[in-house]
Design a protein around this nucleic acid. Sequence first.
DNA 1: TCCAATTAGTTGCATATGCAACTAGTTAAA
DNA 2: TTTAACTAGTTGCATATGCAACTAATTGGA
Lengths: 166, 166
Amino acid sequence: MQLIGVLVYVCTMENDDIHIDFENSIGPWLGKTVKIIDYAFQEFLKYKGLDLTKEQMIVLKKLHDKNGLNQNELAFLTLRNKSSLTRLLSKMERKNYILRKQSTKDKRVNNVYLTQLGKEIFFKTKPIIEEMITDIESNISEKEKEQIINILKKIQSNFNSKIESL
Amino acid sequence: MQLIGVLVYVCTMENDDIHIDFENSIGPWLGKTVKIIDYAFQEFLKYKGLDLTKEQMIVLKKLHDKNGLNQNELAFLTLRNKSSLTRLLSKMERKNYILRKQSTKDKRVNNVYLTQLGKEIFFKTKPIIEEMITDIESNISEKEKEQIINILKKIQSNFNSKIESL
DNA sequence: TCCAATTAGTTGCATATGCAACTAGTTAAA
DNA sequence: TTTAACTAGTTGCATATGCAACTAATTGGA
């Protein structure tokens, strides 16, 4: 597992940047943290023997919350491009986790449903999600959790106005 | 720009999840924030007419900090797999931003250097990096910046032990 | 000295992703 | 009603990425 070395290294790495104070800015810290979490999640899924990516898991979860969402809605909820979603769903359909059903009201629309297998897979994945959440937040106080989420909300809103103005 | 709609939507979205408290956990907030930042960054680079991805920019920056790093070191510093780095460098070499030079001391090693063009591109990119950092941190106080970086460090260290124990 | 183990980098195969162009179905306006 | 504009989803082309298997070079131990 090559990346582990990388992660350990980076996490103990101090600022090596004397040109731009890049490593002491929020952005790079966010990026690294998410990379580490994503990697751990993927490892964890593999370790538990689940044939599933993090992205596919999120789709399963959204469908578990509300079965029959259409692809547009799923793309919105999972924060991805509709073409990316198309291909994600195709892979999941091939594995028989989900099912596309053309809407009778509007033939352009596909409603997406969990299959029995998809439900089972999600059921197996749920404790992993919960454990990931616990792991991320261990050693983090309730107050810190509030703090970080508030700061993240602020950052996001900074970019909403930014993107709209482009 | 399709994603903009997505971003605006998601950022005003409240917790729709009654099964697992996923949307009020740190993980998903981190993920969304990074996605938004990455997207804005990419848009910004395109807007400025730079033929460069965020990933390539990071490589340029690392080489600007220390020209002649080998691929192994670059992979470490940029937190990516060596095979991914190989291909990233190939694309950058094709664009004549960087140059691989085989080490005479150890013929297995490639030292990587910025070309003149690579230096120019980095020079043009630098203000964009600085503006991104400013954007991310606007409306964020110095104290909050410290807070979030500390929390992120804690989260990262949670996963160091986790990954090592797998 | 010579062979085994290690190391740096590449490549095949897989995933995920965005944009732009496309098809097909729907809506709205002339 | 008929056509233009829009919408949902797909596909081609591009990027980035990880793992495993590979090559070539180096190192270290018997």
